[in-house]
């Protein structure tokens, strides 16, 4: 159990370091960086490489945004296995719906509860 935390910390941290390099050295905007990482996650799953990473690092692989690309691909592939090409389209949000629905719901609640403040501290 201790090791699972350690692996989650190290793997998750390293994915963030890759993102930081894209921001600082690659001079990408946050939008470009996150979009690229999502695409990388999708491609890694295409080669079957992301699931082993999740087995190793747990939340270290499921919490970074790369896992979003992975789970989209994963859902699509799982349905494609059952229904062929149609499944690619229908299966996409099978696995990953919770992140988006949570963001939408909490975005709405956040807008109800809060307003932005231009303070420094």
């Amino acid at each position: 159990m201790i090791f699972s935390f350690l692996f989650a910390f190290v793997v998750g941290g390293l994915i963030c370091v890759v993102g930081q390099l894209m921001l600082d050295v690659g001079k990408l905007t946050p939008g470009h960086t996150l979009s690229t990482l999502v695409v990388v996650g999708a491609i890694l799953d295409g080669f079957g490489l992301y699931e082993p990473l999740i087995d190793l690092a747990g939340a270290g692989a499921t919490v970074p945004i790369t896992s979003f690309g992975n789970s989209l691909t994963h859902g699509a592939l799982a349905e494609a296995e059952k229904h062929g090409l149609v499944g690619v389209l229908t299966g996409m949000f099978e696995v990953t719906s919770s992140g988006i629905s949570a963001a939408i719901l909490f975005g709405f609640i956040g807008a109800l509860l809060f307003r932005s403040k231009g303070t420094i501290d």
């Binding site: 935390f5 910390f9 190290v10 998750g12 941290g13 963030c16 993102g19 939340a59 270290g60 970074p64």
Partner: peptide, 10 residues
Amino acid sequence: VGGSICAVGQ
């Protein structure tokens, strides 16, 4: 920070 957020996720 990224590692810590993932550890919290774990």
